[in-house]
């Protein structure tokens, strides 16, 4: 069975499994439309970093509103498809404790050509940070703290444009 394209999981992320699932989905699209098959696949891994704001980080603990997070990933893929119609995206995010150097997120983009795959991948991670209902608690030497970034507002076109600009930089 193929991995789901969009998932939130407490398990260690399996990037090759997501790559296979995204390439398979892209192939199904191509078979249907007659467009070229995948010629480029990008895999973005977000890792837990050992330092943040000058603090020595011990580990992160992620919490998610799981069903809404999965819907947010689907929405991000739909948005990306408006800009890059022939791409396929997959997004998996981990929850629970994640050690330094382990992946908290994997984003796979498949397309006929590399430019679209790179752009859609960058767009997706920017949008995840803007609208996915996921929170990280940072455990560092001397304490722990919730990290709070963007106020999630999926219909905020300014934020969406910002993600688009970054993806085309």
């Amino acid at each position: 069975m193929s991995a789901a394209l969009f998932a939130v999981t407490g398990a260690v992320l399996d990037a090759p499994a997501l790559e296979r699932a995204v390439v398979r989905a892209h192939g199904e699209d191509s078979a249907r439309t007659g467009d070229p098959g995948a010629g480029a696949v990008t895999t973005f891994l977000g890792l837990v970093r050992d330092q943040n704001l000058g603090r020595r980080v011990l580990h992160l603990d992620y919490e998610a509103y799981e069903p809404l997070a999965v819907r947010s990933f689907e929405r991000i893929a739909e948005e990306a498809a408006v800009h890059w119609p022939s791409i396929r995206l997959g997004i998996h995010h981990r929850t629970g404790p994640v050690a330094i150097g382990e992946a908290s997120i994997v984003i796979v983009a498949a397309s006929a050509h590399r430019a679209e795959a790179f752009a859609a991948s960058r767009y997706a991670i920017e949008r995840v940070k803007q609208i996915a209902p996921i929170w990280k608690r940072e455990y560092f030497e001397g304490g722990d703290v919730w990290i709070e970034g963007a106020v999630a507002a999926p219909d905020d076109l300014e934020a969406r444009d910002k993600a688009r600009r970054l993806s085309c930089a």
Partner: peptide, 10 residues
């Protein structure tokens, strides 16, 4: 009904 603070995924 869910209430959510600013998000920090990724």
């Amino acid at each position: 009904i869910a209430f959510m603070p600013p998000v920090s995924g990724g």
